[in-house]
Design a protein around this nucleic acid. Sequence first.
DNA 1: CAAACCCAAGTAACCGGTTACTTGAGTAGT
DNA 2: ACTACTCAAGTAACCGGTTACTTGGGTTTG
Lengths: 333, 333
Amino acid sequence: MTDKVGTIRDVARMTGLSTATVSRVMNGNPKVNPEMRAEVLRVAKQLNYVPNPAARALSTRRSKTVATIIPTIEHSVFAKFITAIEQTLAARGYNLVLAISNAELTREMAAAEQLVAMGAEAFILTGATHSGELLDMLERRSIPVVFTSIFDGASAVPTIGYDNTALATAAIEYLHGNGHRTIAVAHGPTAESDRTAARCRGVLLASSDEIETPLVEVALSVEGGREAARRILEMSPRPSAILCLSDVLALGVMFQLQSMGLTIPDDISIMGFDNLDWSKDSHPSLTTIDLPATRMGDVAARQVVDRLETSAPMTSTRLPARIVERESVRRVT
Amino acid sequence: MTDKVGTIRDVARMTGLSTATVSRVMNGNPKVNPEMRAEVLRVAKQLNYVPNPAARALSTRRSKTVATIIPTIEHSVFAKFITAIEQTLAARGYNLVLAISNAELTREMAAAEQLVAMGAEAFILTGATHSGELLDMLERRSIPVVFTSIFDGASAVPTIGYDNTALATAAIEYLHGNGHRTIAVAHGPTAESDRTAARCRGVLLASSDEIETPLVEVALSVEGGREAARRILEMSPRPSAILCLSDVLALGVMFQLQSMGLTIPDDISIMGFDNLDWSKDSHPSLTTIDLPATRMGDVAARQVVDRLETSAPMTSTRLPARIVERESVRRVT
DNA sequence: CAAACCCAAGTAACCGGTTACTTGAGTAGT
DNA sequence: ACTACTCAAGTAACCGGTTACTTGGGTTTG
């Protein structure tokens, strides 16, 4: 049992074959005599041989690496998304290189440069707001990119996601359909997220003389949700419902209301956005909008890989998202 | 503005210098005339030149890539951990390649093979239970490895984490110190996680004639927590406290108790394990054990990079974790 | 029986950097 | 004036695969 890693020439020497044949075996090229193939594999295993990825990448100009940059991985829906991407890429023989931008464009740019410099063949980005410099760089190197968590049929870069604006509008209309007229909306920082901004736009589109929708911007965390609830309860007239533009905020809102002795949905209705995996298990269970995070990661990864392997054009995809009715919203009159 | 990416020879040709000088400039080698340096950088920028990572890796035998395999990224403490690793690696010029094993040893092995085949220089693994095959492979290729989320001074492979057993014992003792004698313990599948198994061991060590600690194994999810609570409430005598070996379970337990009309901690005390970021914001706020996930990721990444750059030996590190007293546990008599 | 063909296997150029070693101009020392 | 030294810059081998093209034995065909 050797302790050093062998090269293709070692394997060639030991089998008495050429490097070309060894290479063919390692790549599953069918034009090799089965006996030779078996012999090569035997020796390769014995030598603990694995083709050097750098040499292979240099020669083929393929790194089999896809970069994903997300704003954060903590709470929220990104964890599911990343999991799906990783699984799909792995199934296709690709690797995921991950960077986290903290929702800062400059960090995103820096991360992207590093990822390009390490050979990423394609990028999966979050949202549609990115520095022009970044997009230029990818364009110049003709590196495929997709935007996710957002759908925009008119975007030059393919988008894979849902229509944040329309969904937010639908949420308000749903609440309105249940008799709510004053609906407070808790949301994270719009400056950090165009998805949040799009949702706010959707809220505004749905509001009218009939429907008031005071917006409350807080940090995107459970703690932020608590703060939002406190602020909302001081409003007058007091909203009969709170739409949280993220389930994470909804959790904070629920905790805050409970600690103030209020009952959901009797005293006030709550609606979320995301459908995280605990949303069905909260008390009361949370009415929310189910975002297809897993599906989105899967589709994004699949499209990118297809593009890399067959130059198939990537197409924007609108993923279905729907309202999940549960117990946290009640009908008022 | 060219649209093709240039090579080092293009830059050399355009500047009238040799590839060696260009290479020196790109690597910050000080032995270059400042004027030449500036010229090279100018041309490089104009040509949109970035050194080919595969060529560089082939030549230097360094990929600047660290692999991390975690069981899951959803809920729980891994998201923080991964974030810290990514940040620290990025700061040192390294990239993170992530794989998710779903707590399956075979998937972990498969992922590791792919990661080795893509040039990962070091591995950060979770827990101490891994297939011998995997460890052998890394050993043979002399790829550095660390285990995390666990501390074991006697381990041959360096471990960076905390003492799960002792912490669980401490948790039971804390509850006992608050007068609890019958303490139900909700935990995830021990077969999937040696950390969970170690915690269960710690629980058992603390139990005695004085202290009863019935164990309840459920899925590691909020839903699992709800199930655990249901099962625990049927026990007789009914436990006065529930120790959840993960905050995620605690959340489920709290929801279930609330939906049954019980009050925490008046009717029953709850204690968690992890200190996720919402734990301080729940209602009531959760008494739990603060695990240094961020610190752990940082230390792991730092050690691995130091090892790669200076061959410094890696050393097992026990990270401090402590009980955070909040409102979910009450003193009984 | 010779020409045409097939196909497994080999040869060697090439991918794009890095770097040990070499070169040669300029400066210092005697 | 001549040797010794310094140092920026160049030359070219090398990293370890892949693959277009070549080779040559064996089979088919007219």
